[in-house]
Amino acid sequence: MITAKEKSVVFYLFKRVFRQLLFVFMWFLIGGVIFPMTLSLITGSNYNLLQAIRSLELGPTFYLVIGCLALLSYDDFKLLIQNGVSRYTYWKAKVITFIGISVLSQTIAIIYFFLMRLILNGNRWEDYSLFMQVYGGFFKNTTIAYLVSFIFAILSAGVFSLSCILVGSIFSLFTKRQRRLIILALITLFIVGIATISNTYQHIAFNAEPWFVNTLNFLVGYDKGGTLNPTMPFIDMVLLGIIVCFGSLQVIKRFKIRNE
């Protein structure tokens, strides 16, 4: 299943990502808790440490930070090819690492969430989880609803990081200069697109094509009877996961050392 070399690469990547994660988190804590606290001490304004700790959004933060870390590809590739590691092994190890670290971090986030709920009377999961808000009504049993939504949170975090691997590896095919140009082009496109859309639809009512609405309904599991089927988002996620996974392998297999 997994060779000794693949294990070593997983170990290497895991350690690296973990360290980066800790580093980002340290700044997150400084910016989110310590800095406002110090500021309140200086200015004498009211600061509620408990409130800050209670509402620490660990899950989404992990989600985003891990996604960003998954974007970085070329530097690891350089070091690994220097050390006689093939692209396939790199890809495999990276997928394993990010799925692992996503699962781990989301589990920690969920545990933290419920600890806060228990000890400090934090948010309710029903209000917090998007999945619970949309599909929660489907379940008769709250415990099962909770469990399913946990699994979804973990799964979606994994798939998100895999998608970031794909995006990051596509960017890695280009030189720094090309990357800057692409990002610039995308931002311009985005702004112009938003402006155009908002201009167009200011006067005309939004009328989506039926096929579009139908596809969307199918993907979210919307039934004509008005119920939402929670298996659909799972199927979507798994399919998306498989697609981005395979896609990133195809991209990473094309990695080469660039002249720059």
Binding site: K5, E6, K78, Q82, V85, S86, Y88, I257
Partner: peptide
């Protein structure tokens, strides 16, 4: 080509720096 075992038996020191 894409062979860990073969690549692990080689070390190429290149002018280009691949270390971070």
């Amino acid at each position: 080509f894409e062979n860990d075992k073969a690549l692990g038996q080689m070390y190429l020191m290149s002018e280009r720096n691949l270390y971070s």
